[in-house]
Design a protein around this nucleic acid. Sequence first.
DNA 1: CGGTGATCATCG
DNA 2: CGATGATCACCG
Length: 225
Amino acid sequence: MNNVNIPSSEQDLLERAQNLAGLSLGEIAKHAGIVVPPNLTRNKGWVGLLLEQVLGASAGSRPEPDFPHLGIELKSLPINEQAKPLETTFVSVAPLTGLVGINWHNSYVRKKLARVLWVPVISAKEIPIAERLVGMPFLWSPNEEEEALLAQDWQELTDMIVLGEVENIQGKHGQVMQLRPKAANSKVKTQAFDKNGKPFMTLPRGFYLKINFTQGLLHRYLRVN
DNA sequence: CGGTGATCATCG
DNA sequence: CGATGATCACCG
């Protein structure tokens, strides 16, 4: 069963998402006719895919926003009962080549994060998948401070890539956004350039939002209204 | 193969 | 016990 039911507007999408607040993943899955896996070990993207389907996002792996006509990206956000994110948030694969002419302003990361529908899910490990509750979804765009932090980290990480130092980048780099492996396993390789400009093969990387960043925006939206 | 959706699992 | 590096499933 596919999404015949595509949200017509940002407001429509937001309302639909907010109607999920308080529901359990089990209830939502049942309504959608989807079986809840016993755990996420072999279904790591399950929550995100469930929400995509229920909210009428376009499926597939195309590098586009989940709602192309609205320019909105959908992100599930696992949190604990104290509203603290439990995991970093994957943003996108990091380009390791073809970076000439790319800057923060025209970067893919900035585009992806321009408008995000965050759907918090209380996902403490001890809670069975089906019993995990959806929190209050909210639409977010970076404010000036957030965008400055993202731009700074993106620049630092991209500079290192351009200088051929991608293999010296560790998770600790970046204040709010980091670069980490993003692959099926550590044997997967993609092309990059070393510091002498020579091509070599390395592990694909992705940009991830650190927990302090998503925690901050969560608080910004949950606090004053 | 390289993108999407992410969480797992081990280490300090 | 949090953060980093590694990993899993699916799609076109």
